[in-house]
Design a binder for these strands. Structure first.
Lengths: 334, 334
DNA sequence: TATTCTTGTCGAAACGTTTCGATAGAGATT
DNA sequence: AATCTCTATCGAAACGTTTCGACAAGAATA
């Protein structure tokens, strides 16, 4: 591999001149620049990232902190990841996956100690997430995908639950429904302050009230059995209910089973809309599900973009970006 | 951050002594070692990976090369990735995601040029994959997840299609089925030499012959519509067919629709087994699907482990590891 | 007793960058 | 004509490691 020394020799200049020519940090005559450019091309020069990092510039490596336990997202996560990696690459950064137990702050400390990462993307944020405080105390650049109570104070990207709720309920109302059920994620997730469980509930209930839609909310563990139970009791309690909103992928099969166990059929007797699932999944069902697609690709892309903006000093380190889901009409609603 | 100099000073020895004490590359007296250990503990010392890399040792960063286009796996990929990252971490490596268009060899060359990666994991291998030749010519350590014709010559991890086929057909025969249909992936994937499409077909047909099961194989594009068409014609052509093997997640909904369009029901009139899909997905269906679970977590784990073995010189750079899927009995077979 | 080998340690060079301070020459200001 | 300011360039130091060669002091060998 060619080094900066080889370039300097070939262009007949000092090493530092080459460095300045590349970075533009000091004026270099056009003529010398040209010779340098040529030498670089001829020798296929690529700066060594390690050396650059050692000399004090960043590593251009970003760490994406995944929760090792919470595999709830599934299908959706891979879109986020691959899109994030693409974004990083397009801006000449690398993305590495951190699956350590980052909630254990001493583990997190170890991760940041080796200075390998220029910045972090934090996912699966819970209420009063300690990691947020920790990273910000250390003065490390990071962005959050998700939200917690103090998320406003940091740079974050999240689903626009309010717009998502408005969009889906507008659709519901337009179709003439007046009574809706909402099957949320688990009570446990809600109590832990998991963003979607909390924010979607609030936004839906708020919007429903404004639109004059009656909404009955239930929590549900992410399992088939629980889905069936919850669906059955919800429907028994509300005989006039004509549309069901579900934000719980794993419970969906059970919910459908519960519905048909009551002798109802989708969409004839009951419309069903899945909230924040992936299109791939929604299309697996029969009938295919009307759903609000989770903007996972956008979350990944923006997460990285914002982080890079901070790193390159182009943006202040605060402010939220909200991205709504997209409504896809399937066969499960009338 | 504490550097090796700080340790040396505090322990009252030379920098090089500390280095040798840590690496064990030269004998150091137990007493000095103890002082050094203590100093390290007191100062929370962590070697700077950049400096180590510059000095010629590796970066301890592994690159996982994903195909930016082929998002076919979906649910399964995230398991593989997260498990791979875990494995890397457990051996003190980092895993970074490369989503560049690595089939474009000049892009691949650029990736390897910056020496950031100690080794690579290559996925989604096709027949006579150029990247394999390229990397091996460059003498870079890598492992393959998947297979191509010359895969034997390199270190690789793949699904054990033979065992998977034997296992699933043994189950089929035991249940008394004598005529089976196999809905493969697309003809295009097959012609491109995509491992699963090629190897599963061969293994199934071979095993079926040996077991005396009649097997009709069809290709199918990964879409709902195509699934329906293929299922209908396959079943029309083989009225005695009593079990359907499907290795095509995206076509599944269509296939099920086709089956019921013919007035058949699963599993009463026809058993259905999904090959190499994820359990999460299989459980989404109603009835839940009997399936051979793809060993994605193991593939990810072993991929990284093998690569590290090579890097640390503990293994020669060739040989295949095959991992069979796991049969899960659902409600779709009798 | 003189020589070689081993063991434990040190100092310095090397890895490939970036950046600081110095400087030579050209042009502008007195 | 002397001074000042730019502009373009150079050389050297620094970043934090690893490793090579040197070298004492003691052990083993002759």
């Amino acid at each position: 591999m060619a080094t900066i020394k080889d370039i300097a020799k070939r262009a007949g200049v000092a090493v530092s001149t080459v460095s300045y020519a590349i970075s533009g940090n000091r004026p270099i005559s056009e003529e010398v620049k040209k010779r340098i450019r040529q030498a670089m091309a001829e020798l296929d020069y690529q700066p060594n990232p390690m050396a650059r990092a050692l000399a004090g510039k960043g590593t251009r490596i970003l760490g994406l902190i995944l929760d090792p336990l919470d595999r709830s997202l599934g299908i959706t996560e891979i879109d986020l990841l691959s899109r994030a990696a693409e974004a990083a690459r397009s801006m000449n950064y690398h993305l590495t996956l951190l699956t350590d137990d980052s909630r254990n702050l001493s583990v997190l400390e170890e991760i940041i100690a080796d200075k390998l990462f220029d910045g972090f993307i934090l996912m699966e944020i819970h209420k009063e997430d300690e990691r947020v405080r920790f990273l910000s105390e250390k003065g490390l650049p990071f962005v959050i995908i998700g939200r917690d109570d103090r998320t406003q104070d940091f740079r974050s990207i999240d689903i626009d639950f309010q717009k998502t709720a408005e969009q889906v309920l507008a659709h519901v109302k337009e179709k003439g429904h007046r009574e809706a059920g909402f099957i949320n994620q688990s009570l446990n997730a809600f109590n832990r302050g998991y963003g979607p469980a909390v924010a979607m509930k609030a936004s839906l209930e708020d919007t429903a009230r404004r639109l004059g839609i009656k909404l009955d909310t239930r929590f549900c563990l992410p399992s088939r059995e629980e889905g069936e139970n919850v669906a059955v009791t919800l429907l028994r309690d509300n005989p006039a209910l004509s549309v069901l909103l579900v934000m719980n992928d794993q419970a969906l099969p059970g919910i459908l089973k519960g519905i048909s166990a009551l002798g109802l059929s989708v969409p004839k007797d009951l419309s069903l809309i899945s909230l924040l699932s992936s299109s791939k999944l929604a299309e697996m069902f029969h009938p295919s599900l009307t759903h609000m697609e989770i903007p996972s690709r956008e979350l990944g892309w923006h997460g990285v973009c914002r982080l890079v903006e901070i790193l390159e000093g182009r943006q202040e380190n605060r402010g939220m970006i909200l991205i709504p889901g997209t409504l896809h009409i399937g066969e499960s609603t009338i």
